[in-house]
Amino acid sequence: MNLKQELQTLNGKLDTFRRKLAAAEQRGDAAIILQFKKEITAMTKRIANVKGQQTRQLNKEGSEVKGLTFKRELTKAEQADMGQLKKSVKGLVVVHPMTALGREMGIKTVTGFAPSEF
């Protein structure tokens, strides 16, 4: 299971625990309330751990992409014919500003990174 899917399932479980906690508080069941509070704290710790893993993974990927020797913004024509561009340039990595990697790197336009000039 990748980190994104795991984070979604953990958030789903956390939401379920919170709803069950609210129902138990409404009933006044002290033992169940205590149990769900423990579950919620454990789940929030696990979610924080997974988010930290995601951040580390993005940082690693961003540093690998920044390590490529050449970068430049892609023109609209190049963006329109991305398949041909990727075939002609070996090792091209295209980063869009709206992806997680693009936001992490602080990119404002679609940028191509490659080991050699293109």
Rank of each mutant, 00 (worst) to 15 (best):
A31H: 11
F36T: 01
I32P: 00
A30K: 13
A23C: 15
T41V: 15
Q57I: 01
A48D: 07
A24S: 14
Q26I: 06
E25A: 02
A24N: 12
A31N: 14
Q54P: 02
T55W: 02
V50N: 00
A42I: 09
K37Q: 14
I47A: 02
L34C: 09
I40D: 06
T44F: 01
E39S: 13
G52R: 03
A42F: 07
A42M: 07
I47N: 00
A24V: 11
Q26R: 12
I33D: 01
D29W: 10
R27Q: 15
K45H: 08
T41D: 14
A23Q: 10
K37R: 15
Q35D: 11
T41A: 13
K45N: 11
A48K: 03
K45W: 06
L58D: 05
A48I: 00
F36W: 07
A30R: 15
G28D: 04
G52S: 08
Q54W: 02
M43W: 09
V50L: 03
R56E: 06
R56V: 06
A48E: 05
G52V: 00
D29L: 11
R56Y: 07
E39Q: 14
K38S: 13
F36S: 00
Q54I: 01
G52F: 00
R27V: 09
Q26M: 11
Q57C: 02
I40W: 06
N49H: 04
L58N: 04
K45S: 12
T44Y: 04
G28K: 07
A30F: 09
Q53T: 03
A23G: 10
N49D: 05
I33T: 09
I32T: 12
K51C: 04
T44C: 02
V50F: 00
R27C: 07
F36D: 01
A30H: 11
I40P: 01
L58A: 09
I40M: 08
A23L: 15
I32E: 09
A48Q: 04
A24D: 07
Q53C: 04
K38P: 04
L58P: 03
T41W: 06
F36P: 00
I47M: 04
K38W: 12
T44H: 02
A22D: 08
N49T: 04
R46P: 01
I40C: 03
M43N: 06
I47Y: 02
E25G: 04
T41R: 13
A31E: 08
G52M: 03
A31P: 04
T55Q: 07
I47K: 03
E25S: 04
A24I: 12
I47L: 03
K51Y: 00
E39C: 13
D29A: 14
Q35E: 15
K45Y: 07
N49S: 05
K45F: 07
L58S: 08
I33H: 02
T55Y: 01
I32A: 11
G28I: 12
A23Y: 11
L34F: 12
F36N: 05
L34N: 10
A24C: 14
A23K: 14
Q53E: 12
D29T: 15
T44P: 02
E25T: 05
T41L: 11
L58C: 07
A48H: 05
Q26K: 13
E39Y: 13
T41F: 10
L34H: 11
F36E: 03
N49R: 05
A31D: 12
T41Y: 06
T41S: 14
